[in-house]
């Protein structure tokens, strides 16, 4: 275990906590982008180069952008300004539930006989990944492609809504 890993873990968890506890929605999204970068850094540290760059490309480049757009489109509602007493008690119980889950998880991990194989990171090249995706995982790849297409069309239909009869649609 080395210092880099501990640093990555601390930064990722810290930014994630700050994002989840923050009052400002936009700061939360930007902090989460940092947390996702931290996860990508962990992938890089573990030797999964392709997964790390895919993570940055998808999460920081695409998902955070879409989330920011959604934040701006729905900004009129000043929701998070003042949580009432009901919200506070709910937050408290949520944190307790999460802490209980964390306690159970950490306890189980520490008790189980997980011996790390001392060997170096399994080297996997992009070519190998491509061959695997096209060979044994080809069906899954097709399914993911179909899923993405369906999700994209569904998202467009949901977000565009019923817009007939609005004059600004006809330039």
């Amino acid at each position: 275990m080395n210092a880099v890993l501990i640093l990555i873990a601390l930064v990722t968890v810290g930014t994630a906590i700050a994002a989840m506890a923050g009052r400002n929605l936009l700061h939360s999204v930007l902090l989460l982008a940092l947390a996702w970068t931290g996860v990508a850094a962990f992938y890089l540290w573990a030797g999964a180069e392709f997964a790390a760059f895919a993570q940055v490309l998808v999460y920081v480049g695409a998902i955070s952008m879409v989330v920011l757009f959604a934040v701006l489109l729905t900004r009129r509602s000043r929701d998070e300004a003042a949580p009432g007493p009901a919200g506070q008690s709910r937050a408290l119980s949520a944190v307790m539930a999460a802490a209980a889950v964390a306690g159970v998880l950490v306890g189980a991990i520490l008790r189980s006989p997980l011996a790390a194989s001392p060997g170096p990171a399994p080297a996997v090249t992009v070519r190998q990944l491509g061959a695997e995706l096209m060979g044994p995982y080809a069906a899954a790849l097709l399914a993911v492609g179909v899923l993405l297409t369906v999700a994209l069309i569904g998202a467009v239909v949901l977000a565009a809504g019923d817009r007939t009869g609005q004059p600004e649609d006809n330039p």
Partner: peptide
Amino acid sequence: FCLIFSGVLFSVGLAGALARS
């Protein structure tokens, strides 16, 4: 250590999903 890291991250996400409105 990695598993604990991911467990804590999971709990943070869980707390956020439950607590925020």
